[in-house]
Design a protein around this nucleic acid. Structure first.
Lengths: 193, 193
DNA sequence: GTGTGCATGTAAGGAGTTACATGATTGC
DNA sequence: GCAATCATGTAACTCCTTACATGCACAC
């Protein structure tokens, strides 16, 4: 087993403040140790309001290390490179500063389904109903995913570590998804009468 | 006043099926006549679930014209180029086909504010409250925008033209925004006790 | 022994944004 | 006369995604 360390630190080579940096920093703080683990963690949590891909996470970790916001512990086996990361003091400070900052990129929402609904007047009544039904189904599945997968995981995390906000966000997401699903059900019934 | 027309039609040079095409087609169908008008229309409607920019709209109109899905009427004045567009028969057919199709890009939502909330455990209690308060404020402003600007416009459109779905979507958006704002208010009170 | 999951990265491409550049028209 | 709005477009850039490439470890 390899084991070298690295904590090279030019006083903190100012890194650009992009949300992806703080997703990574935040997930390290919640206990993720590898790039792979960061990505896995986002897939059951921040995916719904800030999706990521491995092709973002790995380069980001490299940047954060260069900026001194994370420390890397080399853990390679033979040919296979592997690293264990931890958030540094500077990293924790940077994370808190971002959490307190008020400048943020405008929320972005893109949904081809709702876009179709907006233009649905161009369809005959039967097809309008098919469309609404499909949207309602989709909303129901999303609500079920929040309720059955995301919320339980967040609650387990809260039990295990005392971290509250992942569960707060999960509940907000679950309730909102359920609300939308319910609204679309109502719309469906309205169209059938 | 210039006035030439163009309806060159190679049987419909298969255009790639991207939502932006149908935003443009759909807005032309709702009465927009210029690229500028399309953009203005999206800014008070689809902006919330499919934002656009002029740098997308103009090239898209050119592509749609080449594909024969819109017709262009040249309306230039002196040095200033201007065009009036209309959706063609083929365009209407393509719009309906898209509305009926079930393949869609996965909904994407990105919100730096909610991302902050997810990691808020890293903050001291006081700062947590400041963050929640800010999110609640923001949600309230968004809900007010839906209620005071977007819904009335959609209702006016419905009165004037009989088109129902813009208003359906506006109500859904307004109600959802109000729901989220209410939930965040509750969270704020919860934190204060 | 084979598939699944853990693990790390690069390269190419696509979609969308901001900035830049220009000009006409309308209302104050 | 000047500002705001209508109007059209291009160029550069950013961010993110998909596809590709590799290899270890473990359970069945």
């Amino acid at each position: 087993m390899g084991s070298t360390e690295s904590t090279a630190k030019p006083p903190s080579a100012a890194l650009k403040q992009r949300p992806i940096s703080f997703v990574v920093l935040g997930m390290l703080r919640l206990g993720a140790r590898s790039g792979y683990a960061v990505k896995k963690a986002t897939d059951v949590s921040t995916r719904f309001f800030w999706p990521t891909s491995l092709a973002q996470v790995y380069p980001e970790l490299a940047k954060l290390e260069r900026a001194g916001l994370v420390t890397r512990h080399d853990d390679s086996h033979g040919n296979r490179r592997r690293s264990r990361y931890e958030i540094s003091e500077d990293g924790t400070v940077a994370l808190r500063r971002w959490l307190r900052s008020t400048r943020e990129s405008p929320p972005q929402f893109r949904d081809e389904g709702i876009l179709r609904l907006y233009f649905a007047d161009a369809l005959p009544a039967g097809d309008q109903r098919v469309l609404v039904r499909r949207l309602r189904d989709r909303a129901g599945r999303l609500a079920a995913e929040w309720r059955d997968d995301i919320v339980p995981l967040a609650l387990a995390l809260e039990q295990a570590t005392g971290l509250r906000y992942p569960a707060v966000v999960a509940r907000l997401g679950a309730d909102t998804a359920a609300f939308v699903a319910e609204r679309l059900s109502e719309l469906e019934e309205e169209l059938d009468s």
